[in-house]
C-alpha cells in the first residue's frame, strides 16, 4: 500500500485521546472511592494531626485539578503508588503478575480461534447441515455460560471425579522447580532452559483455565465467522468467481474467506474486552497468580492504589490490543485509510 506509513502513524496518534480519557476516568474512580484514604493510610492509631499530615503528604488537601496533574506526573514516572497489602510498588506487583495473565489469555484465545473459526466456516459452507446445527447450539449455549461456573464444573469433573487434571491451585504444582524468569511465560521459560518435565507440568495446569476462558469466547467468534462467511458466500464477487470456473478451494479461501475475516477481526476487539474481564473470574476460580486475582485480593483488602493500578493497566492493555487489531485489519483491507472507524 503506497504511503502506508502515514495512516498507521495517524491511527497510533488517535489512541492518545483515548489514553487521556482512560487516565481521567481512572483518576475520577480513585477520588470517588469510599472512605478517606488519609484515614486509612494513617493507620489504626491515628490522631487528627497525623491524618492531616498524611493527607498533605498524599496531596489530598490540594484542589482536584492540581491532584490530577500530580497524578499524571507520577504516572509518567511509572509510579502507581504502593500496595498496602503487599507493601510493594503497584507497578512491580503488576509487572510480576502480568505474564501469568497474558499466558492464560493468549492460550485461551488461540484455542478458541482454532476451534471457532473452522467451525464457523464449516457451518456456513454446509448451511443447514449437522455442523451448522451444532454450531448454533454451541453459540447460543456458549454466551449463556457464566465463566466462573464453567470453571467450577470443569474442576469437579476433571479434577474431583476423573482425576485427570492437577489440583486447581496456581500455575505450577509445588513438586516442580520454577524456571529462571526470562519472559515470565512459564511455557517459554521452561523450554528456554530445556526443562521439558516442568513444561508439561505448567501446560497441565494451564489446560483447564484456558478451556474455561476459550469456551466463553468461542461463541462470539464462531457466530461472527458463520455470519460473515454466509454473507461473503452470497456476495456477487463469489458468483463472478464461480462463473469464471475457479476451483472451489480458490473461491472459498481467496474470495470468500479473506473477505469474511474482516468482520471477524473487528469482533476480536469485543472478544478481548470479554476475555480480559472473564480473566478476573477464572483467575479467582483457579487461584491463578495473575493480575486479576491480585485485583480481587486488593478489593477485599480495600487496597485502593492496587485496584486503580489494575484498572488502568487493563485499560492500557486493551487499548494497545485494539490498536494491533486495527493495524491487522488495515493489512487485510486495502480500503482502510484509518479516517473513519
Amino acid at each position: 500500500m503506497a504511503g502506508a506509513g502515514h495512516p498507521v502513524l495517524w491511527r497510533i496518534v488517535q489512541t492518545i485521546p483515548v489514553l487521556i480519557g482512560v487516565v481521567v476516568v481512572s483518576f475520577v474512580l480513585t477520588r470517588a472511592l469510599p472512605g478517606d484514604p488519609a484515614v486509612y493510610f494513617a493507620g489504626a492509631m491515628a490522631t487528627p494531626e497525623s491524618i492531616a499530615e498524611v493527607r498533605a503528604a498524599l496531596g489530598l488537601d490540594q484542589p482536584l485539578v492540581h491532584q490530577f496533574f500530580r497524578y499524571c506526573a507520577a504516572l509518567l514516572q511509572g509510579d502507581l503508588g504502593r500496595s498496602v497489602s503487599t507493601g510493594q510498588p503497584v507497578v512491580e506487583d503488576l509487572a510480576t503478575r502480568l505474564p501469568a495473565s497474558l499466558e492464560l489469555t493468549l492460550c485461551a484465545l488461540v484455542l478458541s480461534c482454532a476451534v471457532a473459526i473452522p467451525l464457523g466456516i464449516l457451518a456456513a459452507v454446509r448451511q443447514g447441515g449437522p455442523i451448522d446445527h451444532l454450531c448454533r447450539i454451541l453459540v447460543t449455549a456458549g454466551v449463556s455460560l457464566p465463566t466462573f461456573f464453567t470453571g467450577i464444573v470443569l474442576i469437579y469433573v476433571f479434577y474431583y471425579l476423573l482425576g485427570w487434571a492437577p489440583s486447581p491451585l496456581g500455575r505450577l504444582d509445588f513438586v516442580y522447580l520454577e524456571p529462571p524468569r526470562v519472559t515470565g511465560f512459564l511455557l517459554v521459560d521452561t523450554l528456554l532452559v530445556g526443562d521439558i518435565e516442568t513444561f508439561f507440568g505448567a501446560a497441565r495446569q494451564l489446560i483447564l483455565p484456558s478451556v474455561t476462558l476459550a469456551l466463553f469466547t468461542l461463541a462470539p467468534i464462531a457466530r461472527m465467522t458463520r455470519a460473515a462467511m454466509l454473507s461473503a458466500l452470497s456476495a456477487d464477487y463469489v458468483r463472478t468467481a464461480r462463473a469464471a470456473g475457479l476451483a472451489p478451494r480458490t473461491v472459498l479461501l481467496t474470495y470468500a474467506l479473506r473477505n469474511a475475516l474482516l468482520p471477524v477481526v473487528t469482533t476480536l476487539g469485543m472478544v478481548f474486552s470479554f476475555v480480559l474481564g472473564a480473566n478476573v473470574l477464572v483467575e479467582k476460580v483457579f487461584a491463578w497468580p495473575g493480575i486479576g486475582s491480585y485485583a480481587v485480593e486488593a478489593l477485599v483488602a480495600s487496597d485502593y492504589a492496587a485496584v486503580q493500578g489494575f484498572v488502568l493497566a487493563m485499560a492500557v492493555l486493551f487499548v494497545l490490543l485494539n490498536l494491533v487489531i486495527d493495524l491487522a485489519y488495515a493489512l487485510i483491507d486495502p480500503r482502510i485509510g484509518f479516517s473513519a472507524k
Binding site: 464477487y237 469464471a244 470456473g245 475457479l246 476451483a247 479473506r258
Partner: peptide
C-alpha cells in the same frame, strides 16, 4: 467438467460491476 466450461467456454458478465469484483484483491 462444468468448471472447465465456466470461464473457458461460456462466461458471464454481471450487473452491478463494483459488487461483482472481489473488493480486497
Amino acid at each position: 467438467a462444468m468448471r472447465k466450461i465456466r470461464g473457458g467456454e461460456i462466461s458471464m458478465i454481471f450487473q452491478n460491476p463494483r459488487a461483482a469484483l472481489n473488493p480486497i484483491r
